[in-house]
Each structure stands twice: as C-alpha cells, then as structure tokens.
Amino acid sequence: MYQTVPQPNAVQDSSSRLAGDTTTATVAMPRPEMRTPENGRYLQMGYLAASIIYISYLFIMYRRWSALRSRQQQNGATNSGR
C-alpha cells in the first residue's frame, strides 16, 4: 500500500545531533531501527492523542451549547408563566 520516498531533510540532522554528531552533515546515515513496527505504534499514539483532544473540545462545546439552550428554555418558561 505504501510507496517509499527518500527524504533527506533537516530532521535527520537533528537526530544525528542528538547522537553526538556536532558536524553540519546535511544527510545523516539511515537508522534502520526507525522502520520497526514500533515506529507505526508511535504514529497510532500520535493520531489517538490528537483525536482525543479534538473530540474532547467538540464535546465541551456541545455541553456548553446544551447548557445554554436549557437555560434559555427555563427563562422562556419563566417569562411565559409570569
């Protein structure tokens, strides 16, 4: 399903810097461990975390609207009862 495209970019610079390489290498050596199945699990966890945050915010907004509507209805009922 996936194609693979080599992408030498600044990200590899960063990983090599963490490994103690202080040179200004533009293309770091590939790190095979990055392709392990665990790597896919981090993708899943990242998307799960973002989904939880977005859905939680939508739920908060839904609860706010519900609370506001019920207050409006209560006020309407009180006013019509006067």
């Binding site: 996936y2 590939p30 392990t36």
Partner: peptide, 15 residues
Amino acid sequence: PMELRQGLAQKIFYL
C-alpha cells in the same frame, strides 16, 4: 508515501 528513513512516524508531521 511513507518517508524512507523515518518510516510511519513521519506522518505525525501532517498533524
């Protein structure tokens, strides 16, 4: 496409 060196984790970039 999946990035060759970073693998699937690179797709977090789009988020």
